[in-house]
Design a protein around this nucleic acid. Structure first.
Lengths: 145, 145
DNA sequence: ATTGACCTTCCTATGATTGGAAGGTTTATT
DNA sequence: AATAAACCTTCCAATCATAGGAAGGTCAAT
């Protein structure tokens, strides 16, 4: 199987397969006499694993752990679970961050007439001189950043 | 005011102020005889506006619109609201994406013993051969792709 | 033999930000 | 006045994962 076929079979683009090889996430592929990379079913299997983990948002460095665990037949499932839970925490952190932004904006947009007049609480809030920013930060005295 | 003071007063780092100038988000600052950038209160005001919009996740290109609207005294608030709502949609799209990942992982982690045994549904799912095609997933797992 | 679809490597860009190096300026202290 | 520190300047590089393209080699079918 050459790289294009492996890409189609795994869902990982040829570009990314070369990249993963380059950064050492996967071992260097065997080559034909003319330099073409050659892949076997087992390699495609690994690439599919990578593709799915990426789809779940695992960063490449966490996937190194994941791949090592996957290939270790004596792993403890507790270790795998720990990686998954750490990633869930990371996802939740990002979700909360985005939700905070969304709520602030929703609130501002809700109070905006949305008509032909220039009057706009959204801009007023972004431009406010004294910005309590109570929606995103605890009301600690000064320090806005 | 030099760039360091403007940075401290606005919350935007000196590095980023130079960058925003370079990409044309803000006009090139006036310079002293020796080449130092000089900022006035109005500039800091603009930088604070930018800082707050960035904190709400507005990408730099959307902030160009936002700044133009802010500086246009004849704007229609409807236009501002449209930018905000478009950004809210974008935030929601990302939130849903992350939530989908989280739910899939939560489910997998929930079914994982997390003990010393190697048996692990998380790895089993990531490695599964039978649903290489993302559209034919078993009902056990939440959408992924 | 030619064409087209592959493959190879290398370079570039993305977006927003941070880091650093090398060198000039300003301010404060001796 | 000399010196040191804390600034400032530009330029270059790195991040992370991915995509695009150029220049050139290879393979399969016409």
């Amino acid at each position: 199987m050459n790289i294009g076929e492996a890409a189609a079979a795994s869902g990982v683009s040829a570009k990314m397969i070369r990249y993963y090889e380059q950064i050492g996430l996967i071992p260097a592929a065997r080559r034909t006499g003319s330099g073409y990379r050659v892949y076997a079913d087992a390699d495609v299997h690994t690439l599919r694993f990578i593709h799915r983990a990426r789809n779940l948002g695992f960063p490449v460095n966490r996937m190194r752990e994941l791949l090592a665990l996957w290939q270790d037949r004596n792993r403890a499932s507790a270790n795998v679970k720990a990686v998954a839970l750490a990633h869930i925490d990371e996802l939740e952190r990002k979700i909360r961050e985005l939700e905070t932004m969304r709520e602030t904006l929703r609130h501002l947009a809700h109070n905006c007439h949305g008509d032909q007049r220039p009057d706009c609480p959204i801009l007023a809030d972004l431009a406010a001189d004294e910005y309590a920013d109570a929606r995103q930060r605890p009301p600690v005295v000064v320090a806005r950043d």
